[in-house]
Structures are given as structure tokens and as C-alpha cells.
Amino acid sequence: MSDEDTATWIVVIILVMIFLLPIGWIFLAYPAEPHYVVTGEPVREAAGATGITVISASNSTWPLVGAEGGMIYILGDDAGNTLAVQTQRFDSAESRDAAILTISAQTIGKGKTAGTLIVIGDQVIHFGPDPGGIISRVATELREKRVPR
């Protein structure tokens, strides 16, 4: 291998590292949420604790492998804003992670997804577009329901 070929490969390796460094760091810095059974209805409880009203609630099962059922809530605040929230339990960390991957791939254009996800144990909680800042109120309560790592 000539000096030029060696230099070439060094350049390629450095370039690969430049890309893998931040992306690898991100995956390491944010470890996956452990899979454990969450009891009760975290969204209803978080809404109740923050003065958000549950306008309606219905059962729902996502057409995904390992989905064990969950709820669709319509939450409302005093100003009349509403927010659709879906929750779903998964039977394993693998099936839950596959659902997260599916949802995360649904970006709008080259931007972000329209909704917001929060993962607690075996539950994936999907918030739709939030016109009234309901997510920020409920999310704080929801995150406190996570089992400390």
C-alpha cells in the first residue's frame, strides 16, 4: 500500500469517526428505559395531579407486535384546549423498542415527528399536537412515575 493509499484510508476513517462520534455518544448518553410493569393509569393520574381534565377515555390496541392494549385519552385544560394521548403496554423491551423506532421514523419531511413520546417502563405514551401547553404540565408528573435507575 502506497503512502497515498494509507493517507486516503486515514481520511476515510477520520470522516467515519466524525459521524459515529456524536451519534454513538447520543445513544450512550441516553440509555434505554428499563422494561417493568407500570400499574394504574399514569396519564389519568398525572392529569389529575396537574388540574387537567380527562374529557374521554377509550380502550385501544395498536396493530404492532407485542402491543397489549392501552387507552386513548382526550385531555382538556381550563382554557378549552384539548390534547389526544395514546398509551400502550408492550410485553417486552424489544417490542416496545420496535414501536419507538416505528414512531420515530414518522418524521414530517426532514424534521421531527408531529407528536411527542414519553416512555415509562412497559408503556409508550404518545401525545398528539398540543395547542395549549398541556404536555409540559403532564410530562413532569409522568416522568416522576419512572422507577429510578
Partner: peptide
């Protein structure tokens, strides 16, 4: 290909995907 390997085979972390989307933006 290497980034896709990380994407598919590392545990799916919602925050990590959000950060990658933010970097794209």
C-alpha cells in the same frame, strides 16, 4: 450503513432519535 446499524440494533431510545432529528434540522 454504519449509522443504520447503530439505529436498528442499539436499544431504541426516544431521546436519541429526537436529538438526531434536531441535528438534521
Amino acid at each position: 450503513t454504519l449509522i443504520s446499524l447503530l439505529y436498528v440494533f442499539l436499544p431504541s431510545v426516544n431521546q436519541a432519535y429526537w436529538i438526531l432529528s434536531a441535528m438534521t434540522v
